Amino acid sequence: MSTPQAGDEGTDGGGADDAVRALLLLMPRMVGRVKKIPPPEALRSFALAPRHLSLLSYLLLDGPLTVNELAARLEVAPTTVSLMVGELSRQGILERREDEADRRRRIVAIAPDQQPAIAGWLAPGAAAWRKALAPLTPEQRRMFVDTLRAYEAAVTGESGTGKSGTGKSGAGGR
């Protein structure tokens, strides 16, 4: 990594190695800070995993969704989402109801009594991302997200278009 390669120079004259060094320092700090954010007291006994946080974030930001909509957003199989929803429903974190337009479908939502705790816990992270991404153009935001997906794929040994997975490869543990 100490030898610059052709094409490593950025527009500021720094090489890709400089950016790698900065990210190798920054990423562990970011992860460490996020891990130190304790879940609210009301949720501490539920042993929520990162995959649950992503699901809860979508429901918090987008409102009630179907299992298939959640599966598409989480890039996992619908059966994986069904298992998570079942687990969180039994714990009283989520609620499922019939879709009035199609009674075969179930709508998933955060349980009303859990909404304030989840919002208080997850909303600051969303606000921080909004603030960090606000100065960027839509194309720059897309590139940033695509870059993080490509990094995730490279770290996990996945190949493809930069997406983190389709859910068909057992990626439900996220």
Rank of each mutant, 00 (worst) to 15 (best):
Met30Phe: 14
Met30Tyr: 10
Met30Val: 15
Lys36Ser: 12
Pro39Ile: 05
Pro39Gln: 10
Pro39Asp: 05
Pro40Leu: 01
Glu41Cys: 15
Glu41Pro: 14
Glu41His: 11
Glu41Val: 14
Leu43Lys: 01
Ala47Phe: 14
Arg51Val: 01
His52Val: 00
His52Thr: 00
His52Gln: 00
Ser54Trp: 10
Ser57Ile: 01
Gly63Met: 04
Gly63Asn: 00
Leu65Ser: 08
Thr66Trp: 00
Glu69Met: 02
Glu69Arg: 05
Ala72Tyr: 08
Leu74Tyr: 04
Val76Cys: 01
Ala77His: 13
Thr80Pro: 00
Thr80His: 00
Val81Ile: 05
Leu83Lys: 04
Met84His: 14
Val85Ser: 06
Glu87Met: 08
Arg90Leu: 04
Leu94Ile: 07
Leu94Ser: 12
Arg97Tyr: 10
Glu98Ala: 12
Asp99Thr: 11
Asp99Leu: 08
Glu100Cys: 07
Ala101Thr: 10
Arg103Met: 07
Arg103Ile: 11
Arg105Asn: 12
Arg106Lys: 15
Ile107Lys: 14
Ile107Met: 15
Ala111Met: 01
Gln114Met: 10
Pro116Ser: 04
Ile118Thr: 03
Leu122Glu: 03
Leu122Gly: 07
Pro124Ala: 04
Pro124Asn: 02
Gly125Phe: 14
Ala127Leu: 09
Ala128Ile: 03
Ala128Cys: 05
Ala128Thr: 04
Arg130Gln: 15
Lys131Gly: 09
Ala132Tyr: 11
Leu133Val: 14
Thr137Cys: 04
Thr137Ile: 04
Pro138Ala: 00
Pro138Gly: 01
Pro138Ile: 00
Glu139Lys: 07
Glu139Leu: 08
Arg141Ala: 13
Arg141Gly: 15
Met143Arg: 13
Thr147Arg: 11
Leu148Arg: 06
Arg149Cys: 12
Ala153Leu: 01
Ala154Ser: 13
Ala154Ile: 13
Ser159Leu: 08
Gly160Lys: 01
Gly160Val: 02
Thr161Arg: 06
